[in-house]
Design a binder for these strands. Structure first.
Length: 427
RNA sequence: GUGGGCGUAGUGUAGUGGUUAACACGUCAGGUUGUGGCCCUGAAGAUCGAGGGUUCAAUUCCCUCCGCUCACCCCA
């Protein structure tokens, strides 16, 4: 056994898997820019306070999942467990409220949470997320959902569904929570132990308990949308109307209101949503987000509305990989130089340098191997051509260029960069 | 943090209370004179996760630990 392995909950992405990742990341960037979102990168770590205040003291993330450390100056720092707090911090810090609102930004980055790994859940994970800050209108809510939906669609993931809900705001939520607690207190004997603990600490979470006994109780629990204040109600109604309108463009948009949809972070207000794959199970949420109208103010800015989502790239890539229709490019070098003898080796090395400088992808076969071995090597790398240089070629000044993607055919080519580059590109 | 499953070469697997732990893929080397893919031959590569125990003897039985994995929790 090797003495070192990737830390628990982390993994290596080897060259062979990179095509899946570049596809996902390229798609994310394309979709985001189509919607007018500009990329933002923020630091991997931030002041611990930012997350405690932004994400919420009471959340599991803050309570037990953060990678927190004290730096040498004595400040408490934390590896970012999510993306929104950092983006909002940047919005405030750089005065982005002076730009046309809303400010639309996206990120693609790694995040860190100390959790027990399982399928689709890692300690270092990758997210593509977007944030639209500075406009509280329902139009933006639906724009963000549309963005998320088209991203998942662009990844060729079919059968996904969009769940939406509204959990109100600071105005109307307290009354709803009271109603919810009252309801569950009446059923205190019927719910599971976990739920009894949740009752006071995180009442919203009662709703998405997976145990069957609790499910049926949740079904008849008070609905947040019945407790919305007038402003939240109007917002919600328009969100639904716009969502319905989206179906003109996306007839397969499978969205539905889920009264049990709540989210784990404290900052969410009003609209929340998730996209799940066809066979949802375990850690399957592909994308989740919502509105966070109190967050900017909470971390020291002017009251500013915002909405966004984050999608789990690790999970999305896993889906892409499982769908067999993904064709990997399988790209080899243009040329592998096969050389016999030291003089030919030196000549080959200098030709390789010249060709690379000219933009041709070239490898020199490992020195000291037989010609047969070098040819096998060229073939194994899926090269387009083998350029053979031995004593004969050195003397005549003409190398043998052998196409490897075809059964036969071999031509002489003058041993200079120009001629070889032309021959390789020519075809 | 709590449960279940699993730990044999780089990868995927087989196997047995007892002499040199097997197979496939991969890697490397050969298959005469300088030419790949298929094929053939050979080689390297495993303290059988670690430690302890039972036994004349353990990779195989038992315990502990570690690791991986799935699920709960929570979330992307």
């Amino acid at each position: 056994m090797p003495s070192f392995r990737a830390p628990r909950g982390t993994y290596d992405i080897l060259p062979g898997d990179q095509p899946y990742w570049s596809f996902a990341m390229r798609t994310a960037a394309e979709v985001a820019s189509r919607f007018g979102y500009g990329r933002i990168d923020t630091p991997v770590f931030e002041a611990t306070d930012l997350f405690e205040r932004g994400v919420g003291d009471a959340t599991d993330i803050v309570q037990k999942e953060m990678y927190t450390f004290e730096d040498h100056g004595g400040d408490s720092m934390t590896l970012r467990p999510e993306g929104t707090a950092g983006v909002c911090r940047a919005y405030i810090e750089h005065g982005l409220h002076n730009q046309p609102q809303p400010v639309r930004m996206y990120y693609q980055a790694n995040f860190f949470r100390y959790e027990r790994p399982q399928a689709g859940r890692f300690r270092q994970f990758s997210q593509f997320g977007v944030e639209a800050i500075g406009d509280g209108s329902p139009y933006v809510d639906v724009e963000v959902m549309e963005l998320g939906w088209s991203f998942v669609r662009a990844l060729n993931i079919s059968g996904a569904s969009l769940r939406v809900n509204s959990i109100g705001d600071s105005e109307c939520r307290p009354a709803y929570l009271d109603a919810l607690r009252d309801y569950y207190r009446d059923h205190i004997d019927d719910i599971c132990d976990d739920d009894r603990r949740r009752l006071e600490r995180a009442p919203l979470r009662l709703l998405d308990c997976k145990k069957s006994q609790c499910q049926s109780i949740g079904d008849t629990a008070p609905k947040s949308t019945d407790y919305l204040c007038n402003a939240c109600k109007a917002h919600w109604v328009l969100v639904l109307a716009l969502l319905e309108g989206l179906k003109e463009t996306y007839p397969d948009l499978d969205y539905y209101v889920d009264h049990r949809l709540v989210r784990g972070l404290d900052y969410y207000t009003r609209t929340v949503f998730e996209i799940e794959p066809e066979n949802a199970a375990g850690q399957s949420t592909l994308l989740g987000g919502g509105r966070y109208d109190g967050l900017i103010e909470e971390i020291g800015g002017q009251p500013t509305p915002g909405i966004g989502f984050a999608s789990g790239l690790d999970r999305l890539v896993a889906h892409v990989k499982s769908q067999e229709d993904f064709e990997s490019p399988e790209i080899g070098p243009d040329v592998v130089i096969v050389h016999l003898g030291e003089a030919a080796g030196r000549r080959g090395a200098s030709l390789a340098a010249g060709l690379r400088a000219a933009g041709v992808a070239v490898l020199v076969a490992p020195a000291g191997r037989s010609m047969r071995a070098q040819m096998r090597y060229s073939n194994a790398l899926n090269a387009r051509y083998a350029l053979i240089i031995g004593d004969r070629e050195l003397e005549s000044g003409e190398g043998s260029l052998r196409p490897l993607q075809e059964d036969s055919g071999q031509a002489g080519v003058s041993l200079d960069v120009e001629a070889i580059a032309r021959a390789v590109r020519g075809a």
